[in-house]
């Protein structure tokens, strides 16, 4: 029986090898292209920026002082096309899909580095697909932030306080981990975080100019809050299967208030709506 089986396979070997050779001949790496785009700063008081990046690694941070914005993009030509348009104070950056299918063989991943001027007020919208995003907005005059991610890892940080005033920031990720660092320096009074499925870690450190509010909606996964001891923190939970873990908290129903909440200079209300998962607070 085995002999017959192998004999049949041998009989078709020539055809198989021919097909494999055809595949090898057809399979070529998707060409990567480099696109550079910049616009000089010309005294613009504000800039609305929209970044669309469907796949790959994205890095955003402060740019060259003489530029309003700049982008260095490595993209898969044939599947994506670069986007860089400026119209009436609004810039759109990134790549858009050509909706071409196919199999990518080898090659480096798609990547973009975008820099913004620290001089105008920045209204920033990020629409990300899959991949990794490192967003450092420290020092930029952020007035509003909206970040939407499909699947992947998102890290958003503020190494330097925001010199401007931010009304609201929202971060949403369908799947994957979100990490927010030093959001106290963001200058945003309200944060809305939609974690979907994955882990959410929020470092609440930074220079809070006013009391803040964070609304976290998490489907499945854990939420970790890293809080400085000087901050007054009240965590309110909603959800059937949400657990809370944290020291130095007084419980009242589904609300957990930190010790010294009343005496703290800055107060932070955190509402967590989670289907399944745990909320953990670590004091620093």
């Amino acid at each position: 029986m085995t002999g017959v089986r192998w004999a049949g396979l041998r009989g078709n070997a020539r055809w198989t090898v021919l097909s494999a050779a055809l595949l090898a001949g057809c399979g070529h790496p998707v060409p990567l292209r480099q696109f550079e785009y910049a616009r000089p700063y010309d005294g613009e008081p504000r800039l609305a920026a929209e970044v669309e990046f469907e796949a790959g690694a994205l890095t955003i941070g402060p740019g060259r002082p003489e530029d309003l914005y700049n982008m260095s993009l490595r993209y898969h030509a044939g599947r994506f096309r670069p986007v860089g348009t400026f119209d009436g104070g609004r810039v759109t950056l990134g790549v858009e899909s050509l909706r071409e299918g196919g199999l990518r063989i080898g090659g480096r991943p798609q990547a973009a580095r975008i820099g913004f001027s620290a001089r105008p007020d920045l209204d920033l919208d990020l629409a990300l697909g899959t991949g990794e995003a490192e967003v450092e907005l420290g020092g930029l005059r952020l007035s509003r932030l909206g970040l939407n991610s499909g699947a992947g890892r998102v890290r958003l940080s503020f190494a330097v306080p925001n010199p401007g005033s931010c009304t609201e920031a929202s971060v949403a990720a369908a799947a994957g981990d979100i990490r927010l660092d030093r959001i106290g320096d963001s200058g945003c009074g309200t944060w809305r975080i939609d974690g979907g499925v994955g882990k959410v870690t929020i470092d609440l450190d930074g220079d809070w100019h006013r009391d803040g509010r964070i609304v976290i909606s998490q489907g499945v996964g854990g939420v970790t809050l890293i809080a400085p001891a000087r901050l007054g923190l009240r965590v309110t939970l909603a959800g059937l299967l949400t657990r809370f873990a944290g020291d130095r908290f007084a419980r009242s129903g589904k609300s957990y208030t930190s010790e010294g909440y009343q005496e703290a200079v800055r107060h932070l209300e955190v509402d967590v709506r989670s289907a399944i998962g745990a909320v953990r607070v670590e004091w620093r």
Binding site: V30, P31, R33, Q34, E36, P40, A77, G78, P82
Partner: peptide, 23 residues
């Protein structure tokens, strides 16, 4: 190709597109 700024200035936007052209 590239834009090589060797002391000159572009008042408008600067774009460059490098690499093999697909197809």
């Amino acid at each position: 190709g590239r834009i090589r700024e060797e002391g000159g200035k572009v008042r408008g936007e600067r774009r460059s597109l490098e690499g093999a052209v697909p197809g």
